[in-house]
Design a protein around this nucleic acid. Sequence first.
DNA 1: ATATAAAACTTTAAGCTTGAAATAATTTGC
DNA 2: GCAAATTATTTCAAGCTTAAAGTTTTATAT
Lengths: 156, 156
Amino acid sequence: MVAGPLPTPSGPGKDRLRLWIRLLRASRTIEAELRERLKKEFNTTLPRFDVMAALYRAPEGMLMSDLSRFLLVSNGNVTGIVDRLVSEGLVARARRNGDRRTSMVRLTEEGVRSFAMIAAAHEGWVGELLGNVSEDEARRLTGMLTSFRSNWEGRE
Amino acid sequence: MVAGPLPTPSGPGKDRLRLWIRLLRASRTIEAELRERLKKEFNTTLPRFDVMAALYRAPEGMLMSDLSRFLLVSNGNVTGIVDRLVSEGLVARARRNGDRRTSMVRLTEEGVRSFAMIAAAHEGWVGELLGNVSEDEARRLTGMLTSFRSNWEGRE
DNA sequence: ATATAAAACTTTAAGCTTGAAATAATTTGC
DNA sequence: GCAAATTATTTCAAGCTTAAAGTTTTATAT
């Protein structure tokens, strides 16, 4: 849904539709640029970066279900991404004694080192790509987005 | 990149990073909900909807390359989606006399009817999902997003 | 004219994504 | 204790996505 159904929609509710289209186009444009740079500079992907970022925040590890809930993606999806990260030695699964259904997933030492480097570049890129948003404006926008995010928290 | 590298980043440039994370989470949350409803209510997908929306705006048709540029996705991607829409009778390709490399892609009559129905529901959903954003706030947010979109237009 | 380059698409391989079905382990209700 | 339900995860099929390589057609430069 990058496009609106009509060139310039108007009428009740059209302002929200237009907002949604802009929001989506903005995030897709930035996302595409970040994905390209991750590939070119670090030979990695956005989903891998997402998973590693989540794990970096949780040194003690996360359950697969926590990961998928946090990343807003399906369970099966995370399985595949983690599989690949494990095969590259960036992530490790550890079976737990308590509950043998679950496995704690965490970054390896190499994973931590690797992510730290990528994250630093990533932050710089975002700063660059959003360079024409002033810090003040960024805070205000963030506030507005947060306010309507709260309507969604815990939904299902 | 739904997650930040640290729970609460702070320092120079962190406001833009936080904005980006919020932007991405907001659009992914809404996107996921719309995708689910498109599937449940109309047995279709977001990419199909995107393509049809673009074609609905252009009754005379669009070139494949125009479509992919407009939708911000790769050429090969559009080929597959259009293939499926053609096989379902919603879209038609028409070879042009002038340049035999290109084909004009357009909605069929059934495609137009189908899209009109889906688009009406879609607009309602967006209105609902962004219900707690006032119309005025929506216009202001749209303006802010547009201003930094302009930095990207025509980039490559 | 004719090679060369450019343009418009399609194809391909690898990976991402979902929803649904399948497995396995744990918890709950009798 | 044991069947039934629940929970955590993986597997699967279908479709989406990209970048790169391949095809066909058109434009350009000798």
